[in-house]
Simulated assay, not measured.
Amino acid sequence: MAPPFTQTHIHGALCVLEVDQAIGNLSLNVDRVNIGSGDMNTITGAQLRAGRALIRWSANDLAKAANVGVATIRRAEATDGAVTMVPNNLVAIRAALEAAGVIFVDANGEGPGVRLKKVHG
């Protein structure tokens, strides 16, 4: 029997999250990410730094949440302009920040940014 999975789109990327409960395995497979195209998949180093600051995470916290190396986070944050990296890492980092309440804001003529998700309750 195949493990349960969830298929979703994260900003243009078809993602399949598979959970194998028998061995506690979790995997994220990314079909496509359109990096550097000017759409919502483009993230800047400044957005990563600002998003992390909004939720008071260290680079280590983000690396752990995204399951990437802390050097990957530091390299991305040091980038001026759009971040380029392995698509799976980009999706994982963005998903970790969004799950923690960070919203990525498109340029909309003023430049890209981040903000916190509104808390209901």
Score class of each variant (00 low, 15 high):
Pro3Glu: 12
Pro4Phe: 04
Thr8Asn: 10
His9Leu: 15
His9Val: 15
His9Lys: 15
Ile10Tyr: 09
Gly12Pro: 06
Gly12Gln: 09
Ala13Tyr: 06
Cys15Ser: 05
Val16Ile: 13
Asp20Trp: 03
Ile23Gln: 12
Asn25Thr: 11
Asn25Glu: 13
Leu26Glu: 13
Ser27Asp: 11
Leu28Tyr: 03
Leu28Asn: 06
Leu28Pro: 04
Val33Ser: 04
Ile35Met: 15
Asp39Cys: 14
Met40Asn: 15
Asn41Leu: 10
Ile43Gly: 01
Gly45Glu: 14
Gly45Asn: 13
Gln47Asp: 10
Gln47His: 13
Gln47Glu: 14
Arg49Met: 04
Gly51Asn: 04
Ile55Val: 15
Arg56Lys: 12
Asn60Pro: 00
Ala66Ile: 04
Asn67Cys: 09
Gly69His: 02
Gly69Phe: 05
Val70Phe: 00
Ala71Thr: 00
Arg74Val: 03
Ala78Pro: 00
Val83Trp: 02
Thr84His: 13
Met85Asn: 09
Val86Lys: 15
Pro87Ile: 07
Asn88Glu: 12
Leu90Arg: 01
Leu90Ser: 06
Leu90Glu: 03
Val91His: 02
Ile93Ser: 01
Ala96Ser: 07
Leu97Asp: 03
Glu98Phe: 05
Ala99Trp: 02
Ala99Ile: 06
Ile103Asp: 09
Ala107Asn: 07
Asn108Glu: 14
Asn108Cys: 11
Gly109Lys: 10
Gly109Phe: 03
Gly109Ser: 11
Gly109Tyr: 04
Pro112His: 01
Val114Glu: 06
Lys117Arg: 15
Lys118Ile: 14
His120Asp: 14
